[in-house]
Simulated scan of single mutants.
Amino acid sequence: MTGPVSFADSLGLAGLRGATLTEVDAAASLQHRVDRKYLVLLLTARWFVAALAPTHHVLDLGGRRTTEYHSMYFDTPGLSAWRAHAQGRRRRWKVRTRLYAEDRLCRAEVKTKDGRGATVKHAYTIQAEEYGRLGTRAAAFVDDVFRSDGVPVDTASLSPAAEIRCVRAALADLDGGSRVTLDGRLSCHRGHAAAALRHDLVLVETKGGPRPAAADRLLIKLGARPISLSKYLIGQALLIPGLPDHDVRRIARNCFHTLVCTEPPVVLW
């Protein structure tokens, strides 16, 4: 009897040339970038990957071509970060700890938007055991980024707000300096509440310069359209009753479903 098909097999990642993490980071680390997001059917994602094979490499980690991501997001008691995104403010921020599960690598990350709408990401490596909290070193890092970027928040007011889990494949155009990620089996968790993206859908993100790259043009050709979607934004909208209505409601209704969550959360709120 065969087991469930892996996300890597579903996408046909075996058909791409592999690249090391060093190669991908050297060519397309893109800490300052423009992100474009698309929700596509799994079959469309497979066609997309096959079409990129001549120009893109897939991140290969010792033969493994996907990574399980756990991301714990932090917010103020009044959900200042969530509300800034929901209201579409040009200057906004996110704070998270991210665990690369198979490799036990962990980072504290701060993402901000500059005045032109580009995403700026700052990262600081921490111990895997620190996932889900902001220890002394991580808090100092976040506060430094907030001060330098003019964010009127300090880490003393932040606490864990939601966790996002997914399986990710990363593709890079090593010559063109752009990157594509494909997230599947995506779920949102808050306490014992959970919701998940439909298994036949994939969240595709292109990360490049101000002009759409070849990957964006290909997605448009395949019938996809860019959407404004924050995994943290939609997760909170799904799991916290009574939040103000906003544009992600339609996506939430059509593309996500609630789960019965038996696994205890990493951090209890």
Results as ranks from 00 to 15, higher is better:
Tyr38Gln: 06
Tyr38Thr: 11
Leu39Gln: 03
Leu39Met: 13
Val40Asp: 10
Leu41Cys: 02
Leu41Asp: 14
Leu42Ala: 15
Leu42Gly: 06
Thr44Cys: 02
Thr44Arg: 02
Ala45Asn: 09
Ala45Thr: 07
Arg46Ile: 08
Trp47Lys: 14
Trp47Ile: 12
Ala50Asp: 13
Ala50His: 12
Ala50Tyr: 03
Ala51His: 11
Leu52Gln: 05
Ala53Thr: 09
Pro54Thr: 06
Thr55Leu: 10
His57Asp: 12
His57Phe: 08
Val58Tyr: 10
Leu59Ala: 07
Leu59Cys: 02
Leu59Tyr: 03
Gly62Gln: 09
Gly62Thr: 09
Arg65Pro: 03
Thr66Asp: 13
Thr67Val: 13
Glu68Tyr: 08
Glu68Trp: 06
Tyr69Leu: 14
His70Phe: 14
Met72Arg: 12
Met72Lys: 06
Tyr73Met: 01
Tyr73Asn: 02
Thr76Arg: 13
Pro77Lys: 10
Leu79Glu: 07
Leu79Pro: 00
Leu79Asp: 03
Ser80Glu: 15
Ser80His: 11
Trp82Gly: 00
Trp82Pro: 00
Arg83Leu: 05
Arg83His: 15
Arg83Val: 03
Arg83Lys: 08
Ala84Pro: 00
His85Lys: 02
Ala86Asp: 04
Gly88Gln: 00
Gly88Pro: 01
Gly88Asp: 01
Arg91Thr: 02
Arg91Ser: 08
Trp93Thr: 04
Trp93Asp: 01
Lys94His: 02
Lys94Ile: 03
Val95Trp: 04
Arg96Glu: 09
Thr97Ile: 10
Thr97Cys: 13
Tyr100Pro: 02
Ala101Gly: 00
Ala101Lys: 13
Ala101Gln: 11
Glu102Met: 05
Asp103Cys: 01
Asp103Trp: 13
Asp103Ala: 13
Arg104Ser: 12
Leu105Ser: 08
Arg107Asp: 15
Ala108Arg: 07
Ala108Leu: 06
Glu109His: 04
Glu109Phe: 08
Val110Asn: 07
Val110Ser: 01
Lys111Asn: 01
Lys111Glu: 06
Lys111Asp: 06
Lys111Met: 06
Thr112Val: 15
Thr112Cys: 11
Thr112Gly: 01
Asp114Ala: 02
Arg116Val: 07
Gly117Val: 07
Gly117Arg: 03
Ala118Tyr: 03
Val120Trp: 14
Val120Thr: 07
Val120Ile: 15
His122Met: 04
Ala123Arg: 15
Ala123Cys: 10
Thr125Cys: 03
Thr125Glu: 14
Ile126Cys: 09
Ile126Val: 15
Gln127Tyr: 08
Ala128Gln: 12
Glu129Val: 14
Gly132Tyr: 09
Gly132Trp: 08
Gly132Phe: 09
Gly132Val: 11
Leu134Glu: 04
Leu134Asn: 12
Gly135Ile: 13
